[in-house]
Every structure is written in C-alpha cells, then in structure tokens.
C-alpha cells in the first residue's frame, strides 16, 4: 500500500523523485527496505519486527553475543521436514509427556523411548511403550539398545521420524572466532587466502568448464561455478564453494549447471537459502538467471553467468 503512494508522489512532483533517489546508489529498488541488523533479511518499511527472525527493527542488537552453531546437532526430523527435534549429547527422553523429544501423537506412550548420544554414535531403546519402537522397520525388543545410522528411520508407535547424525565436529575453533568478528572486510580476504593455502585444488580453479561466478554483494568474494554440481557449505574439504558464515550449514545448498540452466537447491540447511529474498523449500530446485541474488545463511551472493 505504502509503496503505491510513494510511486504516485514520484510522478506528481520532481522534488519527491529527488528525495527518493537520494540514498544508496546500488540499491535503487531496495531503497525502501530495511535490513535486519541481526539476520540481514530485507524488511518492508511497514514492519515493526523482522519478518524472519522477529527482531525489533527500531532497536540495535547487543553486540558480542556469539551465535551457537546449531547446524551440527544430532536431530530427529519429521518425514515432511516441517519439524526438527534436536538431540543433546547424553540422554534424551522420548514420549508424549514432559520428555525432551515431545511427540504429541496418540500412538506414542508417555515415556516411550530413550535416545543416547555418545561421541558420534546414537542409540535408541524402548521404555516399555505400548506400540513399540522401530528402527528401519525392525522392532526393538526388550532392553535392546539399537544404534542409529545417519538417515535411518525411527518409528515411535506409528509416528516415523528420520535420524540425522551430527555433522562431524572438526577443530573449528579458529574459523568460529573469525566468523564471530564483526569487521568483515579484512576478514573475508584472510579467510579466502586461508582457503587457498589449504587443499583447494588449483586445477579446479582453472577448469575450462567454468560457467559462471558467485560474487558476494560487497564484491569481496568470488567463487567459480562449474559445469555440473557445485556443493555449497561451511565445511572445508567437503564443498566446492566454502562459505565461512556461522549461519551457513556444513552442507548447505547445491548449485547445478546442466543443459544451459542454472539451478539452486537447499539440501537441508538450518538457516535456509533465499532466492531474490524468497526462502526456498528444502530439496526443491529453483532455476537461476544472470544477476539473481542468493542468500546462504547471512551471506548474499549474485550469480554472474560467464
């Protein structure tokens, strides 16, 4: 509604046009949007609270608060992906009442099962539930403790969930600290150098099948996009494009190029992927065009087709 009004005003008087075009140069269309200081989501000016994280836009966040990485937690996920139940290290009770994993489902008993997370392994045992606990279709008997593999199906009564193992915790402390720093300009360059120093294959950079570039909005970072699949994520060594943003998941998204078409797919990230401001559903590919804006966690990139 408000947008219409300004547009009309712009047509009527020359003064209004000047006033509107005054601010930043590169964001002609976005001028009226307010970026959330916490999650960087662009918000229409009419919003009081950020449409994504809910932060009160007229205020400033307290600084020096580190965001704990939740992407790497073990969890149970509903089959439609709509709900996630984080599993903490140690014992997690599962059931219908006052449990860590609270499942409001009438085939789940009050105290149904226990999941134990130890180091990198996860175990599930049934606590005498009425309708049983199943791992990949086979029922857990008596006091049996069954180990759960990443991606296995755990069924409590008739409620099926998928177990998602924690992402392997590497020694990520330095990366963490860097990312928590606020001043990004120098940092980003440093990080990129660090990446080069490590095992990024030089030959990959020179591959003739270069089809485009992913360039950060501030122009400081640029990643090559190759023919075929380009994995995007925070974890080094596992991704073609490594983004050191704490909001970026270990394995975040995939950028594909095939038959002259670019597509982006969120592969189950914690904090989501956005295409031109619209959040993508997990595992659903979206076609990209030259100049499209892709937000991975808090980092925004533009696709430049070669």
């Amino acid at each position: 509604m408000d947008m219409d009004k300004t547009a009309i005003g712009a047509f009527d008087t020359g003064e209004a046009t000047q006033m509107i075009s005054a601010p930043t140069s590169n964001a002609t269309q976005m001028a009226i949007n307010v970026d959330c200081p916490v999650c960087r989501t662009p918000n229409p000016p009419s919003e009081t609270y950020c449409i994504d994280c809910g932060f009160l836009l007229s205020s400033a966040p307290e600084t020096a608060v580190e965001i704990e990485q939740i992407a790497s937690m073990a969890k149970l996920v509903t089959t439609d992906g709509a709900r996630e139940f984080p599993l903490k290290p140690g014992i997690n009770t599962v059931g219908r009442e006052n449990t860590d994993v609270l499942l409001s489902h009438n085939t789940v008993s009050r105290n149904h099962a226990i999941i134990t997370i130890e180091n990198d392994a996860a175990w599930v045992e049934d606590k005498g539930s009425t309708n049983g606990t199943f791992v990949d279709g086979s029922k857990i008997s008596g006091t049996e403790k069954v180990e759960m593999a990443d991606g296995c199906e755990v069924m409590f009564g008739s409620l099926a969930l998928k177990y998602s193992a924690p992402e392997v915790v590497e020694v990520q402390e330095p990366e963490y600290d860097e990312a928590a720093c606020e001043d990004t300009d120098e940092l980003m360059e440093e990080v990129e150098c660090a990446v080069c120093d490590e095992e990024i294959d030089e030959s990959v950079r020179d591959t003739p099948a270069l089809v485009g570039k992913l360039v950060s909005i501030d122009g400081l970072l640029s990643f090559d996009v190759q023919q075929g699949a380009n994995s995007i994520g925070r974890r080094q060594g596992e991704n073609d494009i490594v983004i050191t943003d704490p909001y970026c998941s270990g394995r975040h998204a995939r950028l594909d190029y095939a038959d002259g078409v670019f597509t982006i797919t969120d592969i189950g990230s914690t904090n989501g992927t956005k295409l031109n401001g619209a959040k993508l559903d997990i595992d659903s590919p979206h076609e990209l065009r030259d100049g499209d804006e892709i937000a991975i966690g808090n980092s925004v990139f533009r696709l430049e087709v070669a």
Partner: peptide
C-alpha cells in the same frame, strides 16, 4: 527459543 544476539524479538 534458540540463543541469539540480545535484544527484543517477536518470537511468534
């Protein structure tokens, strides 16, 4: 409610 930078939020 997940941890986050301090401040006032509309959580829902």
């Amino acid at each position: 409610l997940g941890n986050r930078p301090g401040g006032k939020y509309r959580v829902a």
